[in-house]
């Protein structure tokens, strides 16, 4: 086995970043297998039967029926030990960050995280994305994680594969943490991840009152409203509207960014958008580096005029 892709169960379906990780693994080349863990392992495997993979290894044991770092790290360790993949790959999700370093420590294999490109070496962003670095190792076995949208899930190569159940040997004393059921603090009926048009607000809105401008603009355009983390932390916008590494990953036809500077934690959640139109006062704002249209100006002056023009 050349590559093992560790899949993530996103409440019963395959995490989008897992599919991107498969696309990345296929681009690296060689034989690619996938590993599905937990009560939904068979369902996740079924989602992959039309892809060009060697096989999907499934692990379903009562101690890892739902995610816990202790159990997952040990399962992945045992599968790597038995199958000897040269490269282990996962999406750079919060879950990967939670347990994959433990696999790295257990097996003494380096883990290069948050990779954005594999051309000319494993490239990651450093120093708040102001610079890129190519990271390499001098050992044969490595673990990699790919940043969201580093690879497109649309580029996954089709084919066929089947599932194989893998018996793990887990002792109950292994799982030390007691995990409660995941929950959402507030839920809206807003589906940002499938929205075609999104108007998103950042700190450049200056005051909570001004956020209504974004809702007005969204209404005229038929768009949903999202926000960057600082705006959510300030309580101006509900948490379920947050886009970025700790919020939603969105890829709309239009991402209309209002007063968002474009910190890397935000950008990873929206850079897959088909068109990015950004308004910001600061011509040096990092958001402009990924924008298709960079409007340098005062969002509080432009947006009211834009709403007025769109209404007439």
């Amino acid at each position: 086995m050349d590559i093992l892709v560790v899949l993530e169960d996103n409440r019963g379906t395959l995490h989008r970043m897992s599919k991107e990780a498969i696309a990345g693994a296929q681009q690296i080349g060689g034989s690619v297998s996938a590993l599905a863990i937990g009560a939904n392992a068979d369902a996740l495997a079924t989602e992959l039967f039309t892809l060009d993979l060697t096989e999907v290894i499934t692990v379903n044991h009562e101690l890892v029926s739902s995610y816990n770092a202790d159990g997952y790290a040990e399962v992945v360790r045992q599968v790597i030990d038995s199958e000897s993949p040269k490269t282990v790959i996962a999406g750079h999700s919060y879950q990967t960050r939670d347990f994959m370093p433990r696999v790295s420590a257990k097996l003494d294999i380096p883990f290069i995280p948050d990779i954005i490109s594999i051309e000319g070496g494993y490239t990651k962003q450093v120093l708040n994305a102001k610079l890129n670095a190519t990271v390499n190792t001098n050992v044969d076995q490595i673990i990699l994680s790919f940043q969201s949208a580093a690879f497109s899930d649309e580029s996954v190569v089709s084919g066929s594969c089947s599932a194989r159940s893998f018996e793990v040997n887990l002792d109950p004393s292994l799982v030390r943490a007691e995990s409660e059921e995941p929950f959402q603090e507030s839920t809206g009926d807003v589906d940002l991840e499938s929205a075609e048009l999104i108007v998103s607000v950042g700190r450049g809105m200056e005051k909570e009152e001004n956020v209504s401008l974004a809702f007005d603009l969204a209404k005229v355009l038929g768009a949903e409203v999202s926000a960057s983390r600082p705006v959510v932390d300030s309580g101006w916008v509900e948490p379920f509207r947050q886009v970025g590494s700790s919020g939603h990953n969105v890829a709309p036809k239009l991402y209309f960014s209002l007063g968002i500077s474009g910190a890397i934690q935000h950008v990873v959640g929206m850079k897959g958008s088909k068109n990015i139109l950004a308004i910001n006062k600061d011509p040096e704002a990092p958001i402009f580096e990924i924008a298709d249209y960079a409007v340098v100006g005062d969002v509080l002056e432009i947006v009211p005029k834009l709403i007025e023009a769109l209404q007439s």
Binding site: I112, G121, L131, T134, V135, F288, I290, A294, V296
Partner: peptide, 18 residues
């Protein structure tokens, strides 16, 4: 694990500045 090369990112995106 080590840094092999550090460089300034090149943006491939064509941005229209307004």
């Amino acid at each position: 694990q080590f840094m092999e090369k550090v460089f300034v990112p090149q943006t491939s995106k064509q941005t229209e500045v307004i």
